[in-house]
């Protein structure tokens, strides 16, 4: 097992360096000088421009800039935003909890609906329920979520007035940040009105972001359950006279969940892609919206740092999924 983890880890380092290189090169290829962009239409004095370019290191050869970048990176320095002059890592840390809160709620939403739907669809194969679940999940999978968000806003916020249109919490409330998760922070303070407000703001973004994972989880659970239900040990369990719910919940589900767990792990990248769109629609103050703003302002360090951190996070989660999978399933562990 130690060797297995070690092999996986040894693959992570070159991938990470590769990500830094690609992100660096891509971002350097962006046309337009960031300092001139900062100066805007007023223009800038050439001497001042040269001085600033020197200060930010833009006058060095590109590969020297990369080495400096890498050097700073290993000291935990991801650079400063050109627009706000705040350290990228500080900005990221401030916004990340909002994205995590949204993503975690979405995954919980997707699991709570997707697992039972998939299980029931598999047990009642070819029933109307099964066809309904499969149809709905394919629709969810094909859904342009940026439109789905607008549609839900149109229906629930504009027509029915149930939920707020955008933001994370009503401006009436001020909550001291302890964990950064508003649902937790409001409860810690004991401010239930603020909690309700935070919850109401969270509902639509959660549904929008959770739709795609929900579709994937329902489909995966169903097909995985169908496979397991055809196994001999299920027939044995049935033949022993065990009640149907026990056969399904204990014998079948445990084994069927293994591929589902992997799929959930792999949803992290998908979730992030979704978060960019969801946060843009709902003005959710998270990392996705921050990156889009970074692009529009040509804020190189934000783009560079943000993409890198996200890449690293996804890499680590994939590694954890791999290792967990190795723990659950010895057959994986002993390959290579």
């Amino acid at each position: 097992m130690v060797r297995f983890i070690f092999t996986r880890l040894s693959l992570v380092v070159p991938t990470f360096i590769g990500i830094t290189l690609i992100v660096f090169v891509l971002v350097r290829l962006i046309p337009g000088d960031p300092i001139e962009t900062m100066a805007g239409e007023r223009g800038i004095d050439p001497a001042r421009l040269a001085q600033l370019r020197h200060e930010y290191g833009f006058d060095q050869p590109v590969f020297v800039q990369y080495l400096y970048y890498l050097g700073r990176l290993f000291q935990g320095d991801l650079g400063r935003s050109i627009v706000t002059h705040e350290a990228v890592i500080t900005e990221f840390k401030a916004l990340f909890p909002a994205t995590v809160e949204l993503a975690v709620c979405s995954i919980i939403f997707a699991l709570c609906l997707g697992l039972p739907a998939g299980i029931i669809a598999a047990v009642r194969r070819n029933s109307i329920f099964d066809h309904g679940v499969m149809g709905a999940s394919l629709t969810g999978y094909s859904m342009p979520i940026f439109w789905w968000g607008l549609l839900l806003i149109l229906l629930f916020s504009v027509q029915l007035g149930f939920t707020p249109v955008s933001g994370r919490i009503s401006v009436m409330f001020y909550v001291e940040s302890v964990t950064g998760f508003l649902l937790v922070d409001t409860l810690l303070v004991g401010d239930y009105d603020a909690f309700r407000s935070a919850l109401a703001h969270l509902i639509l973004p959660t549904i929008v972001l959770g739709t795609r994972p929900l579709a994937v989880i329902a489909r995966m659970t169903r097909s995985s359950m169908l496979e397991v239900l055809g196994e001999d040990y299920i027939r044995t369990a049935r033949a022993k006279g065990l009640p149907a719910y026990r056969v399904i919940a204990v014998h079948a589900l445990r084994n069927a969940l293994i591929p589902v767990v992997t799929v959930i792990g792999l949803q992290v990248g998908v979730l992030f892609t979704g978060a960019i769109l969801t946060e843009t629609i709902f003005s959710w103050p998270g990392v996705g919206k921050w990156l889009i703003e970074g692009i529009n302002r040509r804020d190189y360090p934000v783009l560079q740092g943000g993409t890198l951190i996200i890449g690293a996070i996804i890499m680590i989660i994939n590694l954890l999924v791999d290792v967990t999978y190795g723990l659950i399933n010895p057959r994986i562990r002993y390959q290579r």
Partner: peptide, 11 residues
């Protein structure tokens, strides 16, 4: 594949 697809496309 590691980077989120839309993020990479945006960059």
């Amino acid at each position: 594949l590691t980077l989120p697809s839309l993020l990479l496309a945006i960059v």
